[in-house]
Amino acid sequence: MNRYMNPYLAGIMLGVTLFVSYLVLGSGLGASAGLARIAACIEGCVAPLHTQASEYFGAWGKNPLSYYLVFMFAGTAIGGLISAVAGGRAGVVLEKGKRFSAWKRAALALTGGAIVGFASRLGQGCTSGQALSGGALLLTGSLVFMMCIFAGGYAFAYIVRRQWHD
């Protein structure tokens, strides 16, 4: 066996967390919206007038961080840290296959992140807000999004496989 939790029990824990979110907040879990608001805040610090005049970020007002999903995002990081420290899994490392260059892995992580950041805004959510939360409510668009993630991922997986080769 491995040092992580039984995946099915971890899934139940995640599902119960999502259910509590719906029961109390009335909305599901989310990650990319919180991150996008942090991005809006950063852009706002660099170019305040331009950001406030922009159509998408501008709609979030002068203080984009005053939003519940920003707090959820912060909570997610805190929870991750607590659990990693408790499980002895915390520590600075760049995850990659042994035979793969660290620079290339860094470039892939950065580029992949940029694509995901863009796609999350286009699809109005990510794996948390759309696939998981919308999927649990059986919303058509969320399930379409989820299936397309796997289609895109499997189609592209072969090209970037070497980053995990030991």
Partner: peptide, 13 residues
């Protein structure tokens, strides 16, 4: 968005 996300997911991990 899903297809793009999938590509970014598998690239970035």
């Amino acid at each position: 968005a899903g297809i793009l996300f999938g590509i970014g997911f598998v690239m970035g991990g």
